[in-house]
Amino acid sequence: MSGLSRRPVPRRWTPGSVLLGALLLAGAVGPLLLLGVWSLAGAWFYPALLPGEWSLRAWASALSPDTPLWAPLWGSMWVGTVTAVTATGLALPAARALNGWPGRSRAWVQSALLAPLILPAFAGVMGIQVVFIRLGLADTPAGVVAAHLIVAVPYAVAVLSATFAGYDARLEDAARTLGASRAAVWWQVTLPAVRSGVLVALLMAFLVSWSEYLLTLIVGGAQVRTLPLLLFSAVQGGDYALSGALGLVYLLPPLLGFALLAPRLRSAA
């Protein structure tokens, strides 16, 4: 961006940037490769550096129709998608209203919206569980979504607030004087203008839900199964080959989303 263009950008890979790249590769990508190796390991005993025996056992058992993978995968997908769409839908009007909020009350409203980022979310969820039980939300995906929203909404608000900070609300005035109704302005001007931020907010909210372990457990009991719960028990059970396979399945969607949206992350967040 403009800041970068003022400083000379090195054309070739300097030794320094090569070293940094190698370190990042080892630190970030290395452990992920390790998952792949483990998922293909038949037997891999200490102190062997590579599996003594390769096998598709873990994958076969993870992907077979009667394994417990499919229900949690579906559960994570469902909860993550519904959470992401709902959180973004709730955060959009809030972030738009915060942009240009008059007076000092803005800081209070903002704090109230972002507090769950700093206060532990489970502390609130434990307390409200009695109400969820009463309402029949406990042990249901809908209840889990409600709990996930507590963390997902603040993230979406944070992302969209940053987006709206760079948004000129006079665009909406211009549209009104050109004959667009309030509804037309929202759909034809506001939303398209912040499209990048909306996509990033959707991804963030999905990631938050996809990663959530504790809230799912508290509200969903053992009834709502998601991938982190499954992976957790596989790791605790000591089956590292299966953990490797499950881990890769678990990792793929968020990594894909991140790779697709990475170019937009800088402009929106």
């Binding site: 000129d168 006079r170 665009l171 005035d173 211009a174 549209a175 009104r176 004087t177 050109l178 004959g179 667009a180 109704s181 037309a184 001007v189 398209p192 203008a193 499209r195």
Partner: peptide, 21 residues
Amino acid sequence: VPPEARDVGLVFQDPLLFPHL
């Protein structure tokens, strides 16, 4: 009468073109 129905054109200080169009 709401702004969209007044049929009054307004040109601002900045062009304010819609960036997505």
